[in-house]
Design a binder for these strands. Structure first.
Lengths: 219, 219
DNA sequence: TTTGTTTTTTAGATTTGACTAAAATTTAAT
DNA sequence: ATTAAATTTTAGTCAAATCTAAAAAACAAA
């Protein structure tokens, strides 16, 4: 079944909001989509009629099983294109989101399957987020927040939760990237800031709000 | 400047029709776009207002200089994606048109420039059609119609004008592809059919309507 | 050149997705 | 438990792109 670009954007954003809380509400979705609550209500009705959404007036809503499948497929396409843009075309990882946002709506099954194969079935996108496979299975990336890592352990950056330009500016400044090796040197209890070793030589201190957004895995 | 998918499709199809005759008329464009003449007239007015079109009521129309630039850019994107789909993702050359039709509307300059570089600045798409460069220059592919080739000369297939499924079915049957080496064995004046050697061993006879659509270059 | 045919345009309706303003419902607060 | 505030929905518009049916213009033919 084919959906409009607009429908797909609603589905995708409902999916993302559901990662944080089971039920989604009109205002937060309107905010996410940069649109007005009234427009959201309009679309909710359409999505409900198409069986993509469980929705009760004034009560909030969630994706149906069918809606979830569609959403995962969109996420799959988005993340595969992001991977392509960075790995093959040489884009910086913080520049690819907007372009992938357009490419993700080109929905030809064979295209995505062949792209996946061409890229060698990557598990995560350039931000470290998992790429669902052709059956909708999302690989579990064993990762933990750097704020919770024990001292002196070497870890590898696997993803960054907040991908705002402000955050990416900061990460670039400290030369922290997906795949970068870090080691916790010391914790400062006063403000919960953390001194870390970045790569082989550099050392820096990151604040707690930053640390909360950096995820890593061992080894 | 950004244009809607619909606007881009009109511009692109006007461009293609202009290759055959300087002035384009409403009916043929409607036919090309699988839409109604009335819809075409509506859009023509919009394109004229945006200075993409020279248009006089009832007199026909042609792209303006600005419209031509936009058109060439769309064609460039379309053909680069076609090349990508065949050369990198392994699609058959007769399966890529519809997908490229969608991808061509993702209009990020940097994306196309990087894609071009990734593909190593190809000169022609998988059908043998020339790919305009970043400045809008269209490489001249020195080619001639196989119907006009002298006998016993070896030539290489460079492009096929008619890309309908029916034509492609026939070409596949005879194992004729872009890059295939051909040699004219004999001409039959009665129906202007031509016997050709395909590759090293196979020999076949193609009718004049088919020959008219096959273009080749020497050596 | 008058008439008939084809082509093109206008006029008015429809669909999709969005908007504003106002009404309905829920939640929070006294 | 009322009232106030916030959230959500309805009602009515609007713009883009399409359509049908009818009018206008161009063309072709006797």
């Amino acid at each position: 079944m084919k959906f409009s670009v607009s429908e797909e954007n609603y589905i995708k954003n409902i999916f993302h909001l559901q990662q944080q809380s089971e039920l989604v509400n009109t205002n937060s979705l309107a905010n996410e989509l940069q649109t007005k609550p009234a427009s959201v209500t309009d679309m909710l009705k359409k999505l409900q009629i198409k069986n993509l959404l469980e929705y009760e007036k004034y009560k909030g809503f969630r994706l149906s099983t069918k809606g979830n499948k569609v959403a995962i497929n969109i996420v799959r396409r988005h993340r595969l294109w992001e991977y392509f843009l960075v790995a093959k075309l040489g884009f910086e990882w913080d520049k690819v989101h907007a372009i992938a946002e357009e490419l993700e709506h080109v929905s030809n099954q064979e295209l995505i399957q062949k792209l996946d194969s061409f890229l060698n079935y990557p598990q995560t996108d350039p931000h470290g987020d998992p790429i669902p496979d052709g059956d909708g299975k999302i690989p579990v990336i064993r990762q933990l927040c750097i704020a919770d890592v024990i001292e002196k352990k070497k870890v590898i950056v696997s993803s960054v939760a907040n991908q705002s330009p402000a955050m990416l500016e900061l990460l670039n400044h400290y030369h922290i990237n997906i795949g970068t090796e870090l080691k916790i040197n010391q914790r400062f209890s006063f403000d919960e800031s953390i001194e870390i070793k970045v790569g082989k030589y550099a050392v820096c201190v990151i604040s707690n709000p930053v640390a909360k957004n950096i995820f890593v895995y061992h080894e």
